Amino acid sequence: HNLTITQGKLFFHYNPKLCLSEIHKMEEVSGTKGRQERNDIALKTNGDQASCENELLKFSYIRTSFDKILLRWEPYWPPDFRDLLGFMLFYKEAPYQNVTEFDGQDACGSNSWTVVDIDPPLRSNDPKSQNHPGWLMRGLKPWTQYAIFVKTLVTFSDERRTYGAKSDIIYVQTDATNPSVPLDPISVSNSSSQIILKWKPPSDPNGNITHYLVFWERQAEDSELFELDYCLKGLKLPSRTWSPPFESEDSQKHNQSEYEDSAGECCSCPKTDSQILKELEESSFRKTFEDYLHNVVFVPRKTSSGTGAEDPRPSRKRRSLGDVGNVTVAVPTVAAFPNTSSTSVPTSPEEHRPFEKVVNKESLVISGLRHFTGYRIELQACNQDTPEERCSVAAYVSARTMPEAKADDIVGPVTHEIFENNVVHLMWQEPKEPNGLIVLYEVSYRRYGDEELHLCVSRKHFALERGCRLRGLSPGNYSVRIRATSLAGNGSWTEPTYFYVTDYLDVPSNIA
């Protein structure tokens, strides 16, 4: 807008934040220059609390790290170098490059900038070799853009010569660093050979998330399962459950009422301010606690030095998902009996873990797994792929695949051998790939016309006998059925096997 004052003059007093240069501009645009008398524009009460600059400061050096910015700028000295009290560095987070010096300023003089007072450097006698002032900004957020400017702080001049310097606002972004852990990993099994893994992005990506790394490792069953005799009275049979499938998407929606109208769909109840505040506090606490764990609990591995020492970490090797089922080394339970199943799973520490690289999504279907087997899954978020990966501390989750139908069934015939004193040795093959492992066998036998009897055969007993022995049988026709019990439950009964026990007292003698 054009402003013209045809008559009258300007009068400025007691404006401590208004620089004289701005008042002189007002004289020019209003056409009143030359009308004012000496005392109409006070030299001592206008701009006496402001830094009124008329020179431009330029930054000469900028260096960044993930949490620091090192700045240096060209030296500046007023005509009387004693008038320079120091520099004021202003900075704040700036997602967009549209910041002005006066953003967030209120009537009390406060604003949204963080201000650092910096002492002037030592003055050199040689004007050509003056030290460049600077400042190291610490405690910054990774991968965050900051708006920065600097200006001088000078003393009051009796001659009211307006001098000083100020830089333009520059924008500097800190470097990326390792992201925080992925949030809320959930693993479920939808079949006997697959596990579905879902997660949420890290709360602090500290860069642009480029991919996720998912490692999985087959877990050995508890050692007590191999040692305890679950045929003993009072000892509860062990059981394991597989990871249940995901709930429906509708039930997972946030901010939804727990109660549904019987007449149909209901609208979600909005969260109160107290609920939102509580969630923010919980989120802040979780982030602080995660940072504490990362800094205190997890110790970084030592990389190899120039002395030739090897990095103890196993090298990563990509495998196809079809090879995942046989990740671990199978060892027989008892070496003397080769027909026992290889369900003991000690994992070799030198073995390469299978892994998958996930790009542009937060889910993965891990296939080719062994049925009813526990897996430990390790999830890392990465925001750099080359020249070397920059990934987060791992988040861990466990899951067990679903049982395989008929995996616990005894394959092959049940054979028998009759000894003296009416002892019958029953023999059968253990299931080759049971659900988890076989903890015991149930032997059901009966003599024709009598009630059915049951015998429990422990895992250890089966390994020693290759089956079991029935003792003290009365003469007669017998039928026997056997079924295995694994961590997933009972298998199917075998087809009945028949044998006849004679009275050993009636056996004919070869003595003449």
Results as ranks from 00 to 15, higher is better:
Asp506Pro: 07
Ser304Ile: 04
Leu228Ser: 05
Thr303Ala: 09
Asp229Thr: 14
Asp385Cys: 05
Gly264Pro: 11
Ile418Gly: 09
Gly472Lys: 07
Glu247His: 03
Ala335Thr: 13
Pro475Tyr: 09
Glu362Val: 12
Pro349Met: 06
Pro205Ser: 06
Val327Asn: 07
Val411Ile: 05
Gln275Thr: 12
Lys302Trp: 11
Asn208Gln: 02
Leu505Phe: 11
Val297Ile: 08
Pro314Tyr: 12
Cys269Asn: 15
Ser257Gln: 15
Glu260Leu: 07
Asp273Val: 07
Ala220Asn: 12
Ser251Phe: 08
Glu227Arg: 09
Gly412Asp: 10
Tyr396Thr: 08
Asp250Trp: 07
Ser398His: 07
Cys391Thr: 10
Asn477Pro: 07
Val397Ile: 01
Leu225Val: 09
Glu417Tyr: 03
Glu451Leu: 15
Pro403Lys: 11
Val414Glu: 01
Ser248Phe: 13
Pro338Ala: 08
Gly472Asp: 07
Phe337Arg: 13
Ser392Leu: 00
Tyr504Trp: 15
Thr401Ala: 03
Ala336Met: 15
Ala394Phe: 07
Pro508Arg: 08
Ser239Leu: 13
Thr241Ser: 06
Glu227Cys: 14
Leu464Thr: 07
Phe372His: 10
Asn208Met: 10
Leu369Ser: 02
Asn477Asp: 11
Ser486Val: 01
Asp250Leu: 14
Thr386Asn: 13
Lys361Ala: 13
Gly325Leu: 13
Thr288His: 12
Glu281Cys: 04
Phe215Val: 13
Val299Trp: 02
Gln384Lys: 08
Thr497Lys: 07
Lys236Trp: 04
Leu487Asp: 11
Ser479Asp: 02
Val324Phe: 03
Arg376Pro: 01
Asp409Phe: 10
Ser243Pro: 10
Ser367Asp: 10
Arg218Asp: 04
Val457Phe: 15
Gln252Arg: 11
Glu310Ile: 03
Asn326Leu: 13
Leu228Glu: 15
Ile418Arg: 08
Glu433Gln: 08
Gly306Thr: 10
Ser479Cys: 04
Ser486Trp: 00
Glu224Gln: 05
Thr415Lys: 12
Lys302Met: 15
Arg218Phe: 02
Tyr230Gln: 13
Ser251Lys: 14
Gly412Pro: 13
Asn477Ile: 05
Gly412Leu: 08
Val480Arg: 01
Phe462Thr: 04
Val411Cys: 02
Glu362Asp: 12
Glu221Ala: 01
Cys456Ala: 01
Leu487Ser: 14
His425Asp: 06
His254Trp: 09
Ser492Thr: 03
Glu433Arg: 10
Ser486Pro: 01
Pro245Phe: 09
Lys357Asn: 11
Pro244Glu: 13
Glu217Ile: 02
Phe499Asp: 00
Thr343Phe: 13
Phe226Pro: 08
Asp204Gln: 09
Phe499Arg: 00
Tyr441Ser: 01
Phe226Cys: 06
Ile366Ser: 00
Ile438Met: 12
Arg400Ser: 11
Ser479Thr: 11
Tyr375Asn: 00
Arg471Asp: 03
Leu440Lys: 12
Lys233Tyr: 07
Val329Pro: 12
Arg316Gln: 15
Gly234Ala: 09
Glu350Ser: 14
Ile377Asn: 01
Ile366Phe: 13
Asp506Ile: 06
Gly436Ser: 09
Val439His: 07
Pro238Gly: 06
Gln429Leu: 09
Asp291Asn: 15
Ala394His: 12
Ser320Phe: 12
Ser342Arg: 14
Thr502Met: 09
Ser344Gly: 13
Ser342Asp: 04
Tyr259Pro: 10
Val443Trp: 00
Cys267Thr: 13
Tyr230Cys: 15
Asp503Met: 10
Arg313Met: 02
Pro338His: 12
Ile209Cys: 11
Tyr498Glu: 13
Val397Asp: 01
Met427Glu: 15
Arg316Cys: 02
Pro475Arg: 09
Val365Trp: 11
Arg301Ile: 04
Asn383Lys: 02
Cys456Lys: 02
Asp222Ser: 08
Asp409Ser: 06
Asn422Ile: 03
Asn435Val: 00
Ser223Asn: 12
Leu505Cys: 04
Gly489Asp: 07
Gly306Trp: 14
Ser458Gln: 03
Asn295Met: 15
Gly476Asp: 00
Ser509Arg: 09
Lys302Thr: 15
Lys317Ser: 10
Ala263Gln: 11
Ile410Val: 11
Arg481Leu: 11
Val480Gly: 03
Leu505Arg: 04
Thr340Val: 07
His371Val: 08
Asp250Gln: 15
Cys267Ser: 09
Gln275Ala: 10
Tyr396His: 12
Gly264Val: 08
Ser492Ala: 06
Arg313Ser: 07
Ser342Ala: 11
Asp250Asn: 14
Ser458His: 02
Lys302Asn: 13
Gly412Met: 11
Phe289Pro: 06
Gln380Thr: 12
Val297Asn: 07
Asp408Ser: 03
Cys391His: 05
Asn383Ile: 14
Asn208Lys: 15
Asn477Phe: 03
Phe355Thr: 12
Ala309Met: 15
Val414Tyr: 01
Gln380Pro: 01
Phe462His: 11
Asn255Trp: 14
Glu279Thr: 08
Thr373Val: 04
Phe337Asn: 09
Ser367Ala: 15
Tyr500Glu: 13
Val480Ala: 10
Glu247Trp: 12
Arg447Ala: 14
His416Pro: 05
Leu213Thr: 14
Tyr396Cys: 07
Lys287His: 15
Asn477Glu: 03
Gln380Ala: 05
Lys271Ser: 04
Glu281Met: 05
Phe246Arg: 05
Gly264Ile: 10
Asp385Trp: 15
Gln429Thr: 05
Phe289His: 14
Thr288Asp: 06
His416Arg: 10
Met427Gly: 08
Thr210His: 15
Gly207Trp: 01
Val443Gln: 00
Pro354Ser: 07
Arg286Cys: 06
Arg240Thr: 09
Glu356Ile: 07
Gly489Trp: 14
Asn339Thr: 12
Asp323Leu: 04
Arg447Lys: 03
Asp506Tyr: 05
Ala484Thr: 12
Thr288Phe: 04
Gly374Leu: 11
His416Gln: 14
Lys253Ser: 05
Thr272Ala: 15
Arg459Phe: 13
Gly476Val: 01
Ser257Met: 03
Val327Leu: 10
Thr494Glu: 01
Thr303Arg: 08
Val457Cys: 10
Val214Pro: 00
Ala336Gln: 15
Pro270Lys: 10
Tyr445Val: 11
Gln219Cys: 04
Val359Ala: 14
Pro475Asn: 09
Ala488Tyr: 10
Arg481Gln: 15
Arg447Asn: 13
Ser304Arg: 03
Ser344Met: 10
Pro475Asp: 04
Arg447Gly: 15
Leu453Met: 07
Gly476Glu: 01
Pro312Val: 04
Thr485Phe: 09
Arg286Gln: 05
Leu437His: 04
Val414Gly: 01
His254Pro: 05
Leu277Val: 01
Ser392Tyr: 01
Ser444Val: 13
Glu388Pro: 08
Pro403Gln: 05
Val214Ala: 03
Lys406Leu: 08
Tyr504Gly: 10
Tyr212Lys: 00
Ser223Phe: 03
Asn295Val: 15
Glu451Phe: 13
Ser243Cys: 06
Ser344Ala: 12
Cys231Glu: 01
Ser474His: 12
Pro354Gln: 09
Tyr500Arg: 06
Asp261Arg: 07
Tyr445Trp: 07
Val439Thr: 13
Gly489His: 11
Glu420Ser: 03
Asn360Glu: 10
Trp242Lys: 09
Leu379Asn: 02
Trp216Cys: 04
Thr307Ser: 11
Leu280Thr: 12
Tyr504Gln: 08
Gly489Arg: 05
Pro403Asp: 10
Glu442Cys: 08
Leu321Ser: 10
Thr288Ser: 04
Lys460Phe: 11
Val457Leu: 13
Pro475Cys: 08
Thr502Leu: 11
Glu442Ile: 11
Arg353Asp: 08
